[in-house]
Structure formats: C-alpha cells, structure tokens
Amino acid sequence: MRGIEVLFLGNNMLRLLSGLWVTVRLALISIGFSLVLGSALGAVMTLKNPVVKVLTRVYLEIIRIMPQLVFLFIVFFGVTKLTGANLSGEVSAVIVFTLWGTAEVGDLVRSAFGAIPKHQFESGASLGLSKLRLYLYVIFPQALRGLLPNIINLSMRMIMTTALVSLIGVTEVLKVGKQIIDANRFDYPNAAIWVYAAIFLLYFLICFPLSLISRRLAKRRADK
C-alpha cells in the first residue's frame, strides 16, 4: 500500500480534481459547439449537390485521417507561425476538438436522417402535416433517438483524447498525475500505480454514467 498517501499530500487531490475539470470543460465546450455546427453540416450533407458532397467528404476525411496530436500542433504553433495570432492552448484545443466533433456529428446527423424510411416522410405528408410539423413531430424524434447514443459515445472519446492537450501547455488531469508522480519519485517510488489508479477512477466516474445512459437509450430504441 506504500505510495497511496501521495494522493493526500498537500493539495494533490484538489489538483487532480481541478485537472479533471479542465478535461471535462474542454470536452463540454467542444461538444457543445460540435452539436450546433455538426447539425448544420449534417443538414448540408443531405443535399444532393455534388460540389457540396465532395467538399464535405474531403473535410470529413482530412479530419479522420489526421492524428489529433498533429492537428493540435498545426493549430497551436502553425497558426501563430502563419498569421502571428497567438492562440492560447485551451482555445487551440477547443478549435481542434470542435473541428473534429463537427465532422463526426455532421456524419452522424446525415446518416440518422438517411436511415429514416421514405414512407415516414410520405405518410406524414399524406396526413396533411406542414413541412415544419412533419420534421418536428415525425422525423426529428426518430432521428434523435438513433443519434443520442452515438453523440454520447463521441463525447466519451473526446474526454479521453483531451489528454493530448498537455503537449501544448494545458495541464489536464493526466498531466497533473505525472507531475505528482515525478515530484515524489524519490520519496514514494511506488506512487505511480496509485496515482494512475486514481486517474482511472476519475475517468470512470465521468464516463460510466454516460455509458449507462447511452446503453439505456440504445436498448429503448431496440425495444420499440
């Protein structure tokens, strides 16, 4: 058990929690922007226009091919080199995660609308619903149900990927853990396993409820 006391030395517990807050805040802000922009992108992607199709496709593929770390470096350092504008680490991170999230949400929205059978539109229309009401009462609820588990899934991936931001000078929970391990490496050489266990627990506490919700939603959908 030697080493576990490191977690309770000084402000360490508080520092880990505030590191976790940095992680969660980055993910929340990014996913918020992604939902708004991604829904718009998804709507655009359903258009049959070939130019739009190619452009959105290229955007999506670039985002998916490029490792997030490279992307972070390009935005954090590259933008400053090209334009002289000095973006902070957190702003760069939000930009990168929003661009990524927008692409993913856009594709999810597109496929969610695509998955709704044509007869749903037709039967809605034949009931005399206006276009707005058709979407509001028939199409959106169905699309949303398929969408939510995937969005939650994406949020969890984003929370875990935020660990990369320490490379551009943002101190999130994993980096705080490394700092604690290093500062105590002579007095408590076995601290690493306990610090990592604590971080695992913190990630778990954030992600497990999300995972539960996602599973419940998916199940409810299957039952219908």
């Binding site: 000084g10 402000n11 520092r15 101190t171 290093d182 500062a183 105590n184």
Partner: peptide
Amino acid sequence: FSDKMPFGYVDNSGDYQ
C-alpha cells in the same frame, strides 16, 4: 518543465520548484 524533478517540477502544494 513541470514534471522533471529536480530541474522543473510542481510540488505537492501545486507550486513550481
């Protein structure tokens, strides 16, 4: 550095040392 004891690290109170 924030995790390279003893050159640059953050101590248990959260201060750089």
